[in-house]
Simulated assay, not measured.
Amino acid sequence: MEVKKRKDQWLQQDDDRLANIILQAVSEGRSQLAGFQEAAEALGRTKQACGFRWNKTLRKVYEKELENAKSQPKQMMRTHLKQALTSFDQLSEAYYELKEKHEQLQHDHVEVLQWLETGSKFLKKGNI
């Protein structure tokens, strides 16, 4: 006698795929709801069915993985923030160096103009 399967029965591969999609979404900082929508499209089910399966059955199984996934966006944000602050410090340092060089060039420019003016006056007087 053959055992009949329900059309909407969840297979282990469906559960695995659903869990992977949800954990990936959460680790990227997206919501579980966004994961349900993505899983629905991938599995050919409704997002409500995916959400129900996750919350009723799989969430308990993947509790540790879910907690780890939730902490990943925070760690990534800290890393990005550190990089941004380092970049900001480097940019600030470069800005102040360029500002100092610019001021020196302005000063040199004024001196060259004064020297040219003095030379021009000297030539006009006919001292050569």
Rank of each mutant, 00 (worst) to 15 (best):
K64P: 13
E93H: 08
L105D: 00
L18Y: 03
T86E: 14
R17E: 15
N68G: 13
Q12H: 08
S31T: 15
N127V: 12
K7T: 11
E2H: 11
L33S: 02
K125R: 15
D16H: 04
A42H: 03
A19G: 07
D15E: 15
Q12T: 14
R17I: 14
K82E: 13
A42Y: 02
H107G: 02
K60L: 10
Q114F: 05
M76D: 13
T79V: 07
A19C: 06
Q32N: 00
A94H: 07
R6A: 10
T118Q: 06
Q72N: 11
V112H: 00
A69K: 13
Q12I: 08
K82T: 04
E38Y: 07
I22F: 12
Y95M: 01
M76I: 14
L11K: 15
A94R: 12
S87A: 08
N68Y: 05
I21V: 15
L66N: 13
K70D: 00
L33V: 03
D89C: 01
Q37C: 03
K121F: 02
A84I: 12
E63Y: 06
E67G: 05
D89A: 02
S27H: 04
D15G: 01
L81H: 14
Q106P: 02
G51C: 04
M76T: 14
K7F: 04
A19R: 02
S27D: 12
D16S: 14
T86V: 00
F52P: 01
T46F: 00
M76V: 13
L91G: 03
M76Y: 08
Y96H: 13
L43P: 07
I22Y: 10
K60Y: 08
Q90K: 09
H109D: 07
S31H: 03
K60V: 10
T57Q: 15
G119L: 06
G29Y: 03
S120F: 03
Y96Q: 07
L33T: 05
S27F: 01
V26G: 00
Y96D: 05
A42E: 12
S87Q: 10
V61G: 06
S120P: 01
E97L: 11
Y62V: 09
G119R: 14
Q48Y: 05
N68V: 10
A25Y: 06
D16R: 14
K101L: 12
